[in-house]
């Protein structure tokens, strides 16, 4: 029923085009199988089988398995075993590395440190205002069920800030370790003299 993956999908019979089918065909046209498997893996925080990832990425299970093995070898993916089935998700290291790179490209260490202090202050304010320790306790106590409500928005913001705080702290540590030169063995004079 779906026409071939041509960039100009014409419907000479005057039929209609389904948006969900059209965007899937476009994605397949615009990307390689590896790119799609990698993109799907990058959003997997809960482990999934190669077959599930293959269906999402519009590739065969064999292709998905091959690319997932490459991603495990490069540290992007991590695996868990469920009976006979291998489950894949994005590794924490990859999550932290990507976020740190994005932050360190745009922000100075001082700006990151200031941002960390602000996020900590935000979290302290929520704890005080609602008299609970965590966003989970907040959701329970206030029976938050609708993301479209005001309390739903606070819940999302609190959970988001907590995660971004952890990522910013990791980014700052990576930035400091990189600048020291110890990681690559290119230790600078200024560093040794600072220690002396």
């Amino acid at each position: 029923m779906t026409p071939e993956n041509r960039p100009d999908r014409l419907c000479p019979d005057g039929g209609t085009e389904n948006v969900n089918e059209a965007v899937a065909a476009e994605w397949v046209d615009d990307t390689t199988p590896f790119e799609r498997v990698y993109e799907v893996l990058r959003r997997r925080y809960d482990p999934e089988s190669a077959a599930e990832i293959a269906a999402r990425a519009r590739v065969s299970a064999t292709t998905a398995r091959k690319h997932l093995r490459t991603l495990v070898d490069s540290g992007e993916a991590t695996t868990a075993q469920e009976g006979q089935t291998t489950l894949y998700r994005r590794s924490e290291t990859a999550i932290v590395t990507e976020h740190a790179q994005a932050l360190l490209d745009e922000q100075t260490p001082e700006q990151i440190a200031t941002g960390i202090a602000e996020m900590k202050a935000r979290i302290r304010e929520w704890r005080k205002e609602y008299d609970v320790d965590s966003p989970e306790a907040f959701a329970r106590e206030l029976a938050v069920v609708d993301a479209d409500s005001d309390h739903g928005a606070v819940l999302t913001e609190w959970q988001t800030t907590r995660r971004n705080l952890a990522l910013a702290e990791a980014a700052l540590a990576i930035g400091e370790a990189s600048r020291s030169g110890h990681l690559s063995g290119s230790d600078t004079d200024s560093d040794t003299s600072a220690r002396a």
Binding site: R42, R43, I95, E98, H99, A102, A139, R140, A143, V144, V145, D146, A147, G152, L155, T156, Q159, T160, R162, R163, N164, L167
Partner: peptide, 15 residues
């Protein structure tokens, strides 16, 4: 049914 595991969830900066 009344207490879903998540309502929206933390925002994914990478996404």
């Amino acid at each position: 049914a009344e207490t879903p595991r998540e309502v929206f969830g933390p925002i994914d900066a990478s996404a």
